[in-house]
């Protein structure tokens, strides 16, 4: 139960996106291709977790049953998670992780920039802080995109594979529904079509710098924001929520 169902739902989407992205990025901790990059990826993971917590706290503040941000993060099942499909996809290899980060950070930097102008002050404030992180993530990912595209035959092959695997989940980032549309009517969230246009402009530039083709005519997946997920999410949550399932009610 909560005071503002639509706002609450949207906050959970933002919080879940960042939490799942942060958890995936944390998988690189002590597994990076070079020590410096290991540390860089942990920084990115920490940024995601911080952003997630800010949105989750806001969501918890609307919850009338006294749930905390931790209750919301560690107490919901995969059908109650509302992140986009892209962020829950497995890392597979470094190219997949960097392409995922590229798609997601390019989306986040446009979304946050727009949310800063929105009518909800708390969201605007969180976004103003988060946009700097998103821009840095984009810089990191787009640099790696170029290095892998123009590096060796193998890196290009892996990059191309990553693009083919992940591109079908990108349209989902711009999906809207009744929840979103009602917040749009309240001028809290921006027109998703304009976010998508900006995102596509960015992608055309990055792909052209790397001499890589943008996939055409691929089937695009929908879901995530309605609690309908790929099978990967369940495993991620199973691990993330392990202690809460093993020791119900314990305080950590």
């Amino acid at each position: 139960m909560n005071n503002n169902e639509n706002l609450y739902q949207f906050l959970l989407r933002c919080a879940d996106d960042n939490l799942i992205a942060g958890q995936r990025m944390a998988e690189w901790c002590s597994n990076g291709p070079i020590l410096e990059e290991d540390l860089a990826m942990v920084n990115i993971s920490l940024d995601f977790l911080g952003q997630s917590e800010s949105f989750m706290e806001y969501a918890a503040s609307l919850d009338t049953t006294g749930k905390t941000s931790d209750d919301l993060a560690f107490g919901r099942s995969e059908r109650e998670y509302y992140n986009h499909l892209l962020v829950e996809q497995p890392n597979d290899d470094f190219a997949v992780s960097m392409v995922k980060l590229l798609f997601f950070s390019a989306f986040q930097k446009e979304l946050y920039t727009a949310l800063m102008e929105g009518k909800d002050e708390r969201i605007a404030a969180i976004s103003a802080k988060a946009v700097k992180e998103a821009r840095y993530h984009y810089r990191h990912a787009s640099d790696w995109f170029e290095r892998l595209a123009l590096g060796t035959d193998e890196s290009l092959r892996r990059l191309t594979y990553a693009v083919e695997e992940l591109w079908p989940f990108t349209e989902n980032l711009f999906e809207t529904d009744e929840v979103y549309n009602s917040l749009f009517a309240e001028q809290i969230v921006p027109d998703m079509k304009s976010i998508r246009e900006k995102w596509m402009t960015t992608m055309r530039e990055v792909f052209s710098n790397g001499g890589v083709d943008i996939p055409a005519n691929v089937h695009m997946y929908a879901g995530g924001i309605n609690g309908y997920h790929t099978e990967h999410l369940g495993h991620l949550l199973c691990e993330m929520q392990y202690l809460h399932h093993a020791h119900p009610g314990a305080q950590w």
């Binding site: 410096e36 920084n43 990191h140 640099d143 290095r147």
Partner: peptide, 16 residues
Amino acid sequence: IHASDKEMALQNARDI
């Protein structure tokens, strides 16, 4: 730090 190019050097220094 170790890095292969200028931009990576800047980012690695920042991150570390």
